[in-house]
Each structure stands twice: as C-alpha cells, then as structure tokens.
Design a protein around this nucleic acid. Structure first.
Length: 659
RNA sequence: GCCGGUGUAGCUCAGCGGUAGAGCAACCGCCUCGUAAGCGGUAGGCCGCCGGUUCGAAUCCGGCCACCGGCUCCA
C-alpha cells in the first residue's frame, strides 16, 4: 500500500501498516518521538491500520493532539485501577462493570458500575494505582473482533459493553485496546486512539471528583459512578489549571453575593427563591432602567400583568399539562365549591396574547411590541437549583412582538440588535449563539411542519444577515417554535442560556389571533418571543462572575465612598457626599471611628469604584483626593471636576473608568 | 428527582466518645490618624432537625432538611 507524507512524498508499506510503520520508515528519531498521527485530517494512533492512499502527518509529544491521546488512555488506566481497587477489597474484578470513558475538555472520565460507592476519599488510592500502571509502561495493542466474538466477551458479564456493541452499525469495525497482557493488564472495547504505551502518559494528572451519571444520560436507566480527572502535558499546566480553579471559586456569584450583600436565598422562605438585598437590588433597577430606555427607543409599549392566570389560559396555550412536571401545582378551590383553578404563571406570553386579543387589530397597528418585567415561577427539580442561575422564581425582561409574516425578518433583526447591544454594553464577549430547531423524531412540538420550516429558515436568514456566528442544534427548540439563544459560561465553566429570541406561528393559531389586513380580510399574526437578559436573576449571577464583583460604575451599589482623614473633616465629608447624592450618585460618607486605612480597605473590599479622601487640605481648597478601585491614589482635584467626570461615566454606562 | 459529599458563632474554619474553640465581623472603650486591617475589652452556640447506640454524643448509627459537585430536565 502507499501513503503520502506532508511533503507529498509517497511511502510504500506492507498492507495493514500503521502510523508506527510510517515512523519506523522515517528513521529512529521518528520511531522514538512519534505518539500518533493525523491521517486524512483524522486523529489516529500508532496502532490503527492506515487506509490506502492516506495522507499521514506524524505527531510528537509537542503537538496539542497528544493530549487527546493520553487523556483517552488515562481513562483506560483509571478503569484498570478501579478494578484493582475493588479486587483488593475482595470483590471479583468482573463485578466492576464499565460504561463509557471519553476525553473531555481538560481531562477524562469513566462511568463505572462498581459493587459499592466510590467516594472522594477513595480517589488518592485509585490515583496511586494509576501511577503504578503508568510506571509499568504497559504497551498498548489494538485488535479487531467479529461482532459475535466481541459480544461473547461481554454477554452475561457486562450489560453496558454488550449494549454498546449491539448499537454499533453493522458495517462498523469493532476494535479493542489492550494494555499489558493476559497476566497483567486491561482490555477495553474502544475505538481509540491511544498512546502506544502507558509510559507515554505524562504524570501531570489528578482525579478530581466522583458524581452519579445515568447510563446513556437516561434517567430511567441505572446510575453509574462517574470518576472525573484532569490531565496535562506539563506540571505547569496542571498547576495553572488548579490555580485558575481556585480563582474561579473566588468569582462564584454565590460567594460574592454574600460578601457584597447582594442577595440571599433563605431556606425559610423557600429554596430557589431569591431575596434581593438593597445593594443587589440597585443592580436590578439599573438593568431594568437600561432595558426600559432601549425598549422605548425601539417602539415597545410596556404592560403589567398578574402573577397568576387561570388554568384554562394555559390549557389553551399548551403550557399545561405539557410542562405540569415543572410547574407549581394548580391553585384549586374545588373543596370550596368553586370550579375555577389557577396557575402561578410559568410564562408571560399567554397574558400578553390576551392583551393583543382584547380588541380587533388592524395591520396598521403592527408590529405591536408588548414588554413587561414579568416574574414567573417554575418548579425546577431540587437538585437542579443553583444560586441565581437556576431558581424557582425569576423575572424575565420579556416581550412579545405581534407582526405580519412579512415583518418577521425585520423584527427579528431589530431584536437581535437589541440583544447584541445588551451584550456589548456589559462587555460580554465570550458567548455563543445557538439556533435551536425542532427534532423531527420527537412529538413534543405543536403545529405543522411547514410553519416550523418557515420559522427555522427565517431565524437562520436573519442570523446570517447580521453576520452572527452560530451553531444549529436540533431538538433545542421551544415546543411552539424555533429559537436563537445566547449562551455563556459561568466562572466554573457551566453553560447558561441568557438572551433568547423565538419565532412562533403556533400560539397565535391556538388563541385564534387575527388582524385585519389591507384587503379587509382577517389574517393570522406571527409572534416573536424575546428576552435579551433572559432572567434578571441568572443574568446578574453571570454578571457578578463576569466582573468578579467589580461592577462598572453604573451598576455599582455604592459608587463613591467619602472618607475623612479625621473627625475634623466630618462636616466637609458629609457635604461632599450630599452634593454627589444631589447629582444622582450613590455616595456615602464613612464616618466610623476607624483608622482611615481601615475604612479605605473596607471600601476596596466592598469594591466601591471611587473613594474620595478628604483631609484639611481638601477641605480648605474645596477639592477631593480621588482613589480608584484597584488602582490607588490618583491625586486631588476640584470636587466639581470629579463630579463632572463621574457623572459622564455613570450616564454613558461606561465599562472603563473616566479617572 | 437520582448518585456522592458537607452541615460547629453573622462569615471562614479547628475540635471528631468525657463540661464547645480561634480569627474576622458585631457591640463598648481608648487612639484623631494622609491612601488596603491601630489597641483593649464584651457579648454571641438546641454543634442543621428528629430518633437510636452509650454511664456519657458536636463526635458513632438511621431518617429528614438544607447546601456543594455531577447526572437528568430547562417553555
């Protein structure tokens, strides 16, 4: 057979040759250094036979793909170590059954059905066994078995592997990787790729935690134990990762929320229910004021609707009983003889729809844009709740745009512009856009296929026109329509959906909405659901982590702290603070009987953007000594000059300080 | 909801069968101070809740609750 090297040179090799043979042909240095190969753009190890005519580029430990190889092998080493761990406890190694063990972002995991729970305390012992396996430098071998033989290895012993084999397509090769030999080693069903021997795994890895994980992600199936690990090429990378993890924990919005007194989640009030403290509420109010301004500029009208609605309303919309599992149960008065039942509102759209329907609408009124900071309640599963990012009661910056089919694209683009304005105003650059489409195999969607396709096409066209980078994810649509979501990661790498724009042809149909067109006939409007922040709770949670608590001036709960050097300047400090407040700023004089240094420190720790230190000199001259958060003393200036600058920073919602 | 872990003062944590501790915060007092913690004192606890084992439980066991890490779900 013939393969081609990156420089175009052909290499003749015997049939069934691997990248290892390529390395050998290139000389002893390559034979020693090679760990894998890129074959026709695909990552191969040294063990898998090359296809005829392949373009082969060998990889060494310097190539980034090396990480994928040894992380994958580490998963196998982990599995072997866990089997040994339980064997030592007196269990039959066969009683440790294996699910899947893939490579993930910074490392790997393996899903294991163990005879008894694995706890975090077991990890050091397992890790030690892994290091021993690596030290033995067990060579890896790849082999292929016919389906029947492969099945017989696992049937009656390991139901997970059996199922994996049964689910492989008929024409797929069933490969195994063996490290070591029959006497000492481990063999796993695996498509690879791997490093050529366990000794090629750098020792810079660490088992991090254990968690339950349903077999194949299905909550109706057994739960396996997932052991997670991280692994890097160098000790520095591992150290850096662990350091970053510590730093990320300091940004955690739950921690900062308490330290900065922003919000409280009190079990006595109820889990997943947020109490906004005065300081956190400032952030909410500022964000709402910002959104109100933007919406009014863009022709929205504001409405207010109640927190509950009749069950009939949600039966019509389809939210009930479709989402019954994640709703607080209906409020019923049947025992008092009243038939009517209510639902704590899980969505605002039905209320807004009824506002649309309250009178006959003309095409001249469209698009009609109804906006509301609507608080909704959803009964999220207890184990899902997380700080501000996953709660049971939250406020959406919700709006529904009712328009003609012809107006959909323009309206969608208008909303997209608003979402991007929100993201840029807050400096959120690290987001991804995701178009959620309908999964044709699922029956959770309402409405006919033609309308779905139309809506999906319109979203994609608008996204393309706006030059947005996006991914399309099938099955991520709402039950009534496809959507464009903006997704960000929190400090610990978890993804959260913030803004969303949804095109909906179905709810107008279900509610029988119409408008009178220029032709005098009745037509069906289209709805766009949208929430640029998504939920204020989640959005602020993400903002806290994004800024690490160092909010830009316009969002800072306390914007200026005035600190007199000693008691002698208290009157001046009070006067300065009063002038700032009169100008609309959030300013306080700190008159506590602490040393000036201590009060400055407190202001820093509380992340107040500006501290004005005033002593005898400032008092005499009518100036203030300006100190910027994290930057230190900037020197003195007239109070009027400071005020002018800081007001500009505030009103323009600047991310960067003026001083 | 499921698997594993953790609950000690407002916060961070020590104590892990024998009368409950520290630092910070709070409160009181002294110091009157020039850009990130001045000094001294006082008070603060059903050791998450309920039950069990024990002469004796913060400590061991069980149940419940809350939280943490994942999984599942997310209009």
């Amino acid at each position: 057979m013939t393969v081609y090297l990156p420089d175009g040179k052909a290499l003749d090799l015997p049939e069934g040759a691997t990248a290892k043979d390529v390395a050998r042909a290139l000389g002893p240095a390559w034979e020693r250094e090679a760990v894998g190969a890129i074959v026709d753009g695909e990552l191969y190890d040294l063990l898998k036979p090359l296809p005829e005519g392949a373009k082969v580029r060998l990889l060494t430990e310097k190539d980034p793909e090396y990480q994928l190889l040894f992380r994958h092998t580490l998963a196998h080493v982990l599995a072997q170590a866990v089997k040994e761990f339980f064997a030592e406890k007196g269990y039959d190694p066969e009683s440790v059954k294996l699910g899947v063990g893939p490579v993930i972002e910074k490392g790997f995991y393996y899903d294991i059905d163990a005879p008894e729970p694995i706890s975090d305390e077991d990890l050091p012992a397992i890790e030690e066994k892994m290091r021993a396996i690596i030290a033995k430098d067990l060579p890896l071998r790849r082999f292929v078995l016919p389906r029947e033989v492969a099945l017989s290895r696992y049937q009656g012993k390991d139901p997970y592997k059996t199922e994996l084999i049964l689910d492989l397509p008929e024409d797929e090769e069933i490969s195994f990787y063996q490290q070591g030999d029959e006497a000492y080693g481990f063999t796993d069903l695996c498509r690879g790729p791997h490093v050529p021997s366990t000794g090629r795994i750098p020792p810079h890895f660490k088992l991090t935690h254990v968690a339950g994980a349903y077999w194949r992600g299905d909550e109706k199936r057994p739960m396996l134990q997932r052991v997670y690990g991280v692994a890097f090429r160098t000790a520095e990378e591992l150290k850096e990762y662990l350091w970053q993890l510590e730093e990320a924990k300091k940004r955690d919005h739950r921690r900062l929320g308490r330290e900065l007194e922003l919000f409280l989640i009190d079990p006595m009030v109820g889990k997943g229910l947020v109490l906004w403290l005065p300081k956190g509420n400032v952030i909410r109010e500022e964000l709402m004021a910002f959104m109100r301004e933007e919406q009014i500029k863009r022709g929205y009208q504001l409405v207010t609707t109640p927190h509950i609605g009749s069950l009939e309303l949600y039966r019509t919309s389809g939210h009930y009983p479709y989402y019954a599992e994640s709703q607080f149960p209906p409020i019923s008065f049947k025992e008092r003889g009243e038939e009517e039942e209510y639902l704590l509102k899980p969505m605002n759209c039905p209320h807004h729809i009824r506002i649309y329907a309250f009178k006959k609408r003309s095409y001249r009124e469209l698009p009609l844009r109804l906006a509301e900071f609507g608080t909704v309640y959803r009964y999220e599963k207890a184990g899902e709740l997380l700080g501000l990012t996953r709660v049971r009661g939250f406020t959406q910056d919700d709006a529904h745009l009712f328009c003609t089919p012809e107006q959909v694209k323009e309206e969608f683009l208008g909303v997209l512009d608003l979402v991007l304005k929100v993201l840029s105003t807050l400096g959120l650059k690290d987001y991804r856009a995701r178009i959620g489409t309908r999964d044709p195999k699922s029956d959770k969607y309402v409405g006919d296929e033609a309308k779905w396709s139309l809506a999906e096409r319109q979203i994609e066209e608008a996204a393309l026109e706006a030059g947005l980078h996006y991914t399309v994810e099938e099955g991520d649509a709402a039950f009534y329509g496809p959507k464009l979501d903006f997704v960000v990661k929190d400090a610990l790498g978890r993804e959260w959906q913030l803004g969303t724009i949804q095109v909906d042809y179905n709810l107008p149909e279900r509610f029988g909405l119409t408008y009178v067109g220029p032709d005098g006939a009745e037509h069906r409007p289209v709805m766009i659901h949208r929430a640029p922040f998504g939920s204020l709770e989640r959005f602020i949670g993400i903002l806290i982590e994004h800024f690490a608590g160092d909010f830009p001036l316009w969002l800072s709960p306390e914007q200026v702290a005035v600190i007199p050097v000693s008691e002698k300047q208290e009157d001046y400090a009070r006067e300065v603070a009063a002038r700032l407040r009169a100008a609309g700023l959030r300013a306080e004089a700190d008159l506590r009987p602490e040393r000036m240094q201590a009060r400055i420190r407190d202001a820093e720790v509380q992340k107040v953007p500006y501290v004005l230190v005033v002593g005898d000199r400032e008092k005499a001259e009518g100036t203030v000594s300006v100190r910027r958060r994290h930057r230190g003393n900037l020197g003195s200036m007239p109070l009027a000059a400071f005020l002018e600058g800081v007001l500009r920073e505030y009103r323009e919602r600047r991310l960067e300080p003026v001083f």
